[in-house]
């Protein structure tokens, strides 16, 4: 049921129009950060307000919404955001990537390939890929205008000189359609190859920093690298201990105080679907699912005060 005290999808119509205009301009100039007058939302800045505003501007009553955080549907913040839209937009929700029409995500791209008709909305903390090289917005804006991305290459090259490889493991910068360098949000670089040529519309919302940007379907997205040090999408060199997947991104879970570890898919829907289909890994007994692990952590989460 929609909460009648609020407009459909919470935001007022004028705000939604403003956000929608920004989204369309973002789509027209892939990778370019469009400023928008982000509103205070009933959840804190830094907790997905940009993604929430973009999702609110996109939702229709017929949508099926999936919300993930760290790849999981049942992390507390994902639950909180999903609940918010159930309450204010009355949309159906789902955990199945393939069934969802809109997916709001924090820090992951689902393992299951997306399709046409789907929208992936990213929550973005710092949209400016050059920010940690140059703190001033006035400067970074000029650098984008002049396509002056030398500083970024120098930083990556310094990594190689010092460490023998590029020491950026998440929020790995990309170039979109050969023009704008873009921050893909703090997804692990393992996910970077899914940004380009994706069938879905990818929208990025940064609420506190007041920026929206987009990657339309089938757009060229290239992770920055060098000819002699090509980009590598890395992950833990293990298989999922629950479903046995070898090609999915893994979370490392410490299982006792002796340093024992298990590796499980960070994408809980992907993992559960594989287990249901009969796949199992090293510890993949049917009653031991990643959802159970999330459940066992809930007391910990509440005690930490993660309430929204």
């Amino acid at each position: 049921m929609t909460d009648q005290a609020y407009n459909f999808a919470y935001l007022d119509e004028q705000t939604k129009r403003m956000i929608r205009r920004a989204i369309l301009k973002g789509v027209a100039v892939p990778g370019y950060q469009v400023p928008f007058a982000s509103r205070e939302m009933p959840m804190p800045y830094g907790w997905g307000t940009g993604g929430v505003q973009v999702t609110a501007a996109c939702l229709v009553p017929e949508d099926r919404l999936k919300v993930i955080d760290q790849g999981a549907d049942d992390t507390t913040n994902a639950v909180s955001i999903r609940k918010f839209f159930q309450r204010t937009a009355g949309v159906e929700v789902t955990e199945a990537t393939a069934e969802a029409t809109v997916i709001q995500t924090r820090h992951r791209i689902p393992e299951t390939a997306l399709s046409e008709g789907q929208i992936l909305v990213y929550q973005v903390p710092i949209p400016e890929p050059l920010r940690f090289l140059e703190p001033r917005e006035t400067e970074t804006r000029k650098m984008h205008e002049l396509e002056e991305y030398g500083l970024m290459h120098v930083k990556l090259y310094e990594d190689i000189a010092r460490h023998g490889e590029i020491a950026t493991s998440y929020a790995y910068p990309v170039k979109v359609e050969g023009r704008y360098v873009m921050d893909p949000s703090p997804i692990p670089k393992f996910d970077n190859p899914k940004l380009g040529g994706n069938a879905a519309i990818q929208l990025f919302g940064a609420g506190r920093e007041q920026r929206i940007y987009a990657v339309p379907p089938y757009t060229q997205v290239v992770s920055l690298d060098f000819d002699d040090h090509p980009f590598v999408a890395s992950k833990a060199p293990h298989d999922c201990d629950l479903c046995g997947a070898s090609e999915s991104y893994l979370d490392e879970v410490i299982t006792d105080d002796q340093g024992s570890r298990m590796y499980v898919c960070s994408d809980t829907d992907f993992c559960a679907t594989r287990q249901e289909a009969g796949h199992h890994g090293r510890l993949g007994v049917p009653q031991f699912s990643s959802k159970k692990i999330a459940k066992s952590l809930e007391g910990f989460c509440a005690a930490e005060g993660v309430t929204e």
Binding site: F8, A9, R20, V27, I201, P216, P217
Partner: peptide, 19 residues
Amino acid sequence: EAPVQSARAFRALLEAMAR
């Protein structure tokens, strides 16, 4: 019914502009 109609219309515009 502006909230719902404009939402559906925007989705069409978004798909049109994105594809």
